[in-house]
Write a protein that binds this DNA or RNA. Sequence first.
DNA 1: CAACTGACAAAGATTGAAATCTGTCATCTG
DNA 2: CAGATGACAGATTTCAATCTTTGTCAGTTG
Lengths: 197, 197
Amino acid sequence: MATTDVLTAERILEATEEVLRRHGPAKATVVDVARALGVSHGSVYRHFRTKTALREAVTQRWLDRTSASLSGVVAGSGAPEERLRCWLAELFSAKRRKVGDDPELFATYMVLVGESSAVVDRHRADLTGQLAQIIGEGLDRGDFAAAGATPEVLARAVFDASGRFHDPAYAREWDQPGIDAEFTALVDLLIRGLRAA
Amino acid sequence: MATTDVLTAERILEATEEVLRRHGPAKATVVDVARALGVSHGSVYRHFRTKTALREAVTQRWLDRTSASLSGVVAGSGAPEERLRCWLAELFSAKRRKVGDDPELFATYMVLVGESSAVVDRHRADLTGQLAQIIGEGLDRGDFAAAGATPEVLARAVFDASGRFHDPAYAREWDQPGIDAEFTALVDLLIRGLRAA
DNA sequence: CAACTGACAAAGATTGAAATCTGTCATCTG
DNA sequence: CAGATGACAGATTTCAATCTTTGTCAGTTG
């Protein structure tokens, strides 16, 4: 069976996720990953130059799963305003689901995210790119008014403004009562700011 | 001289700030504070029940200085829109000045702030109260449109939305090039969202 | 010969005994 | 007698010895 006897980067990433889930970020060693795969740790180093590179690859995979799940909303067929609302709601709810379902695993990924700012910057660029796509369509259709700004600048502003509802630094506030009302108030304010006068 | 021979809470707070500045948050002990004042550490405990209470009081003093410096803008006489812009700019620049002038002291206060969430909640309530004051006036004058929301809800939305430019968690991004343009883009978006249709 | 192994040096983490700190309180002092 | 002291117990921190991990590479295996 090719999936169990050829050592690929993919299989290593899978095993690393499992080890991280079991042991947490502090105690997950390269030797643990190798043991889980039944190989020597030297073999892992053939696919990832350093432990840091391995951790970054795992982090990227995790973040990319979020980006991918949102790209469906970008490609959707509704009005831009509705898709923007939906995109922000989906981002918030996806993050909230991740913390709620497995807080320890989420904490693990928060540590990894804190370590690899380049990967995070890329993820942020992905997401603001998706936002810029939606906002750009809104401008083209005349639903939104740019007021001198490009879709990219507006996307970045919307992304920053909604940080409290997707930045993991605020995760412990996401189950407080009233959070949904605060989210709605913020999104309403942003959408009114984008709308054509 | 009353300022040097009577042991007051105020003098203890002053000495604590000095000790924190010198030693940092991890190595600042109650005995250090007492030594700086020339008293025994038992005397410090007469004014603050625990070391935690002392740290919280110092943190509150520090945060209150920011609130106080902004209240001038709230009480100002310009148009609400201009005062809101000015308030946000002043908050951002005050925070930025604090990191820039003495990064180590700022890091010290970031540790303290992370410890005492109740004090931070109060500070946030102070600041959103100031914002609500300005926004409320804007609504009264007809410069702003509520769209069904109270000044408090809008204030909270504006405060959350501008988090990247005042939350210490983002401090390391505050000297990146382009940050001022991003700040302006965000504030423009928020103000357009608040304006009467 | 491409993929893997495992012994190894250097870097980093763990541990537990000793030192320091927090918070209390019986006692002292002006 | 209000306010300050300092000795003390228990909690926390430090530090150095020891053990684990990372990353390399000469050598093995299919």
